[in-house]
Simulated assay, not measured.
Amino acid sequence: MSKLLEIKDLYFSFDTFQGEVEAIRGINFEVNKGEVVALVGESGSGKSVTSQAIIGLNPMPPGRYKQGSINFDNKDLTSISEKEFQKIRGAEVSMIFQDPMTSLNPTMKIGTQITESLIKHQGMSKSEAKQRAIEMLGLVGIPNPDKLIYSYPHQFSGGMRQRVMIAIALACNPKLLIADEPTTALDVTIQAQIIELMKGLQDKLHTSIILITHDLGVVANIAQRVVIMYAGKIVEQGTLNEIFYESRHPYTWGLLESVPRLDSKEHGRLASIPGTPPQLIDPPKGCPFAERCEFAMKACIEEFPEETTLSSSHKVSCWLEDPAAPTVERPVQSGGHV
Rank of each mutant, 00 (worst) to 15 (best):
S2H: 14
L4I: 10
L5C: 08
L5A: 01
L5W: 07
E6D: 13
F17N: 15
G19H: 11
I24W: 08
V31D: 05
N32K: 15
V37T: 08
G41H: 08
S43I: 09
G44Q: 05
K47L: 09
S48E: 09
S51F: 10
S51Y: 12
A53P: 04
A53I: 00
I54L: 11
I55M: 15
I55E: 12
G56A: 11
G56H: 11
N58L: 13
P59I: 09
G63Q: 06
Q67S: 15
F72C: 08
L77E: 06
T78N: 12
Q86I: 13
R89W: 14
F97R: 01
F97L: 06
G111K: 10
E116L: 00
L118P: 05
I119S: 00
Q122R: 14
G123N: 13
S125D: 05
K126H: 08
E128I: 06
E128R: 10
R132C: 00
A133P: 01
L137R: 06
V140K: 01
I142M: 02
K147C: 01
H154Y: 12
F156K: 02
S157H: 07
R163S: 04
A167E: 05
A169W: 00
T184N: 04
A185V: 08
T189A: 03
A192W: 11
K199Q: 13
G200S: 11
G200I: 01
K204E: 14
H206W: 07
I212D: 01
I212F: 00
I212H: 00
D215G: 03
I222D: 04
Q224E: 11
I228E: 02
K233R: 14
E236L: 07
Q237G: 04
E242A: 03
P250Y: 01
W253M: 08
E257Y: 12
V259D: 00
P260C: 04
E266Y: 13
L270S: 08
Q279C: 15
D282A: 13
P284Y: 06
E294C: 09
I301H: 14
E302V: 02
F304Y: 15
L310Y: 06
V316A: 09
V316L: 09
E321L: 10
T327D: 10
G335M: 00
V338Y: 14
